[in-house]
């Protein structure tokens, strides 16, 4: 027996498919067009905002150029891989700590009471104030960056997991109990799926903020990485590289978010069916 397709959304109010496809690109494309026009007329001097064509040239050079040919030529792969590794490590650390702790404190009020004040206090401290301390503890380099990323991503992951675990319908847990589900299976078969929409939100927010703190961590003088690139370019007055760095981070951030969403949906029924 095959599943019939069920129209859960009110399709009659939806814009046609093709129009729906291009919707996300309207604002970026419009922005580029505006930028192009402003640059053509010379209203903004190029030392404030270079011409898009120049950015195009710079990005070609940065991404596909031969290293050593010109400053920044061909550095892209090296920078991107370095940054991605740092984000991945910091984010993974935040997930490993934040998810279980969040779930536990969402279900057990003693734990919630124990952790709540501390976590909310620490959460109020801006990342930049951790930077000097992190540099003293971990020195200049990858450890500082990973620490900052993990620290920043921890809070949204923890808080959302706790909220998800707390708001779960108690009748679902009762239903599990009367069907003979023990605690361990209940956690994985009822609690986690039930909290999945919140967990997913937390993970996405955490990954997003990871990029912000990556740049912060890489300001400390590491030789490679996208944050280092931007900082380096500022010293040399290469505004085209700064703009390019921003665009690359935006693109990677967007793609990363999509990848996270898609992989959760592939791995978990609850992510697929409830978000």
């Amino acid at each position: 027996m095959k599943k019939r397709t069920v129209q859960t959304d009110n399709s009659e109010f939806q814009t046609p498919r093709s129009a729906f496809r291009i919707l996300p690109w309207i604002i970026p494309l419009g922005f580029i067009l505006l930028w192009f026009m402003v640059s053509e007329t010379g209203m903004i001097p190029t030392y404030l905002m270079p011409h898009p064509a120049e950015i195009g040239k710079t990005s070609y050079n940065y991404i596909l150029g031969n290293p050593g040919e010109a400053p920044y030529a061909g550095r892209f792969l090296d920078d991107a891989v370095a940054s991605l590794m740092r984000v991945a490590m910091g984010f993974a650390l935040a997930v490993i700590l934040g998810l279980p702790l969040g779930i536990i404190s969402g279900r057990i009020s003693v734990v919630q009471r124990l952790m709540g004040t501390t976590i909310n206090g620490l959460r109020a401290v801006p990342g930049i104030s951790w930077l000097p301390l992190a540099m003293i503890w971990f020195g200049i380099g990858i450890k500082t960056t990973v620490f900052l990323v993990a620290l920043a991503a921890f809070f949204p992951i923890y808080l959302n997991a706790a909220a998800g675990a707390r708001q779960i319908n108690p009748l679902l847990l009762q239903a599990g109990a009367m069907m003979g589900v023990k605690r361990l299976r209940g956690t994985f078969a009822i609690l986690l799926p039930g909290a999945m929409p919140h967990i997913m939100t937390g993970l996405r927010l955490g990954l997003g903020i990871s990029w912000a703190y990556l740049v912060l961590g890489e300001l400390t003088g590491v030789p490679n990485g996208l944050g280092a690139l931007i900082m380096d370019a500022r010293m040399l007055g290469r505004i085209d590289i700064i703009v390019l760095g921003i665009i690359i981070i935006a693109v990677i951030g967007r793609v990363g978010d999509q990848l996270l969403k898609t992989s959760l949906r592939v791995c978990f029924k609850s992510a697929r069916r409830m978000t």
Partner: peptide, 13 residues
């Protein structure tokens, strides 16, 4: 001793 509740307690996922 299984229970059928008044509310909807199916697992939505």
């Amino acid at each position: 001793r299984c229970v059928v509740f008044q509310e909807d307690t199916l697992f939505p996922w």
